[in-house]
């Protein structure tokens, strides 16, 4: 029983990190049809910037805020400066973001070196919780809680606000939204920045567990794409379900068949796609 509970909780904490990435990825794709490879860079840079900011000031929350805001601004600039010019040229946009992934990886290697760095855990959250005879790290519980709260906020934003309705309408028919007098280019920039900020938050919150190292960007964006494909492109609910599925499968897979770790991720993806090509909740 302990095995099940611990691995479920571990799976959930990984799922929350994945959700932070997949949510932005799926929104950006759903609205702008951009396959954003640079999402992994936002995660990596978010983690690294947090590490530096925490080293300089000592505060986890401060570091998190600096990283998230910095990446949101960088995301907005990238969207405005590069992606907006390639409007509707999906292949060029995907290649551009792939190029950015490589460039950022080199910059990060140059700046932070090749050794894995952990984002320092906030002192308040070090230690463990005890329940049913299980000792479990407090930080992971915090991470799961954060993920759930953010998932709820995103859902409420999309489903319960006028701006959220504009985003959903943009996924249905972006041109028609412009025809209603709504500044869609601005909405694009905003959603891209939001997605980047969520990925950075994923790096900050996941950083104490997974660490930042060369290649972490690609590793995590690959998993996030699996999540988005399984969940269905363009759907937040799908991103959430997909994250749970991939997080749990990855954890139990690693526990049972550690030598087959990629296999256990892609088999569920293939099965879902074979049964439902649009993913669990997909619209396209």
């Amino acid at each position: 029983m302990t095995f099940w509970i611990i691995n479920t909780l571990n799976g959930l904490s990984l799922a929350m990190i994945l959700f932070l990435l997949a949510a932005g990825l799926t929104l950006i794709f759903g609205l702008m049809h951009i396959i954003n490879m640079a999402h992994g860079s936002f995660y990596l840079l978010g983690g690294y910037i947090a590490i530096t900011a925490i080293r300089l000031t000592g505060g986890f929350i401060f570091g998190a805020i600096v990283a998230v805001i910095a990446i949101a601004v960088i995301g907005a600039i990238i969207q405005r400066l590069f992606l907006a010019r390639l409007y509707k040229q999906e292949m060029r946009q995907a290649l551009l973001t792939l190029g950015l992934l490589f460039i950022v990886a080199d910059i990060a290697f140059f700046t932070w070196g090749g050794d894995p760095l952990l984002v320092p855990q906030p002192p308040l959250l070090q230690g463990a919780v005890h329940f049913w005879g299980i000792v479990y790290p407090l930080y992971r519980v915090f991470l799961i809680g954060c993920g759930l709260v953010i998932a709820f906020c995103l859902w409420a934003f999309l489903e319960r606000t006028t701006l959220g309705a504009i985003v959903r309408a943009g996924m249905d028919d972006e041109e028609m939204v412009r025809g209603l007098g709504i500044n869609v280019p601005l909405v694009f920039t905003g959603i891209f920045a939001l997605g980047a900020a969520l990925a950075a938050l994923g790096g900050v919150l996941g950083g104490p567990l997974l660490g930042m190292f060369p290649g972490a960007d690609f590793e995590v964006v690959l998993l996030a794409f699996v999540v988005v494909t399984v969940g269905g492109l363009g759907s937040i609910r799908g991103a959430f379900l997909g994250s749970l599925l991939v997080g749990l499968v990855d954890n139990f897979g690693n526990a049972w068949f550690p030598q087959l770790s990629l296999f256990t991720i892609f088999v569920p993806m293939v099965i879902v796609l074979a049964l439902k090509p649009t993913g669990l909740m997909g619209r396209v």
Partner: peptide, 28 residues
């Protein structure tokens, strides 16, 4: 840009209706 024209006082009833199906009537 289109949004600026619409904002300036032009309304569009497009061919094929183009309502937003994933929104409620009220949200539309």
């Amino acid at each position: 840009p289109s949004y600026r024209i619409a904002k300036a006082g032009m309304g569009l009833v497009p061919q094929g209706r183009r309502i937003f199906p994933s929104l409620s009537v009220r949200e539309n």
